[in-house]
Design a protein around this nucleic acid. Structure first.
Lengths: 149, 149
DNA sequence: GATAGGGCTTCCAATGGCTGGAAGGTCAAG
DNA sequence: CTTGACCTTCCAGCCATTGGAAGCCCTATC
């Protein structure tokens, strides 16, 4: 199997296969006399494993660990589960971060008329650093210390 | 004000200020005779605007647009709102993607005993490409509707 | 045997949004 | 005058790819 065949069989781009080899995620493939990389069906299985893991958002670093565990018959499922749950924790943290951004912006956009007039709470928030998302008429002197230190 | 002062006042790293200048996000600062960059308090306001926009996850490209609208007195709030809602849509798409990953992994991790035995549904999923996350003997047709499509 | 095409090889560069370091100039205080 | 904190530029790296250029290999056709 050439790299192109392995790419088709695994769903991983030939270019990406070379990259994965270059960073040591997968072992260096064998070569023909003329220098072409040669792959077996078990190499393709590894590539598919990597592809699926990437689809689930695992970093290359964690995939390296997972591949190692996968090929280690004396692994414990606890080890695998820990890697997975570490990743879940990172995903959840990222989701919470994006969720906060989105909610803030939805709130601001909701308060924005979205018409031809220039007045806009979104820009006001960006200008003021988000300190006072609610832009009430009273000049709120209590906010004097807002964000400048 | 030197770049260090502007950094302190705006909360944007001096290095990042130079970077923002280099990519054209902010205009090139004035210089002293000896080549030091000089900033005014309005420059600091721009930097704070950029910082807040980055905090809300806006791309540099969109921040450029937002800064332009901010400084355009004849802007319409509709333009600003559209930029914001485009960004919200991207955030929501990303959240959905991460949510799907996280849910799949949580499901798999839940099914994993997490003990000293090597048998692990997480690795099985990665191996099989996620085609059959439920590896039960019965093909569980009742689960057809939930999130799997 | 020449040629055309596809696939393979390597290396380099770019993406986004920074961050770090090296090598050197500048400035104020002691 | 020296120290040290600041400033300057440039280069390189992070993550996980993707793209392109230049050139070799292999097969098929004429």
């Amino acid at each position: 199997m050439t790299i192109g065949d392995a790419a088709k069989a695994s769903g991983v781009n030939a270019k990406l296969i070379r990259y994965y080899e270059s960073i040591g995620l997968i072992p260096a493939a064998g070569r023909t006399a003329s220098g072409y990389r040669v792959y077996s069906s078990s190499d393709v299985n590894v590539l598919r494993f990597v592809k699926r893991a990437r689809t689930l958002g695992f970093s290359i670093e964690r995939i390296q660990i997972l591949v190692g565990l996968w090929q280690d018959r004396s692994r414990s499922s606890a080890e695998v589960k820990r890697v997975a749950l570490d990743h879940v924790a990172e995903l959840e943290a990222k989701i919470a971060e994006l969720r906060a951004m989105s909610d803030t912006l939805k709130h601001l956009a909701h308060a924005c008329h979205g018409d031809e007039r220039p007045d806009c709470p979104i820009l006001r928030d960006l200008e003021e650093g988000g300190g006072s998302c609610c832009h009430e008429p009273p000049p709120c002197p209590s906010l004097a210390g807002r964000g400048r230190e």
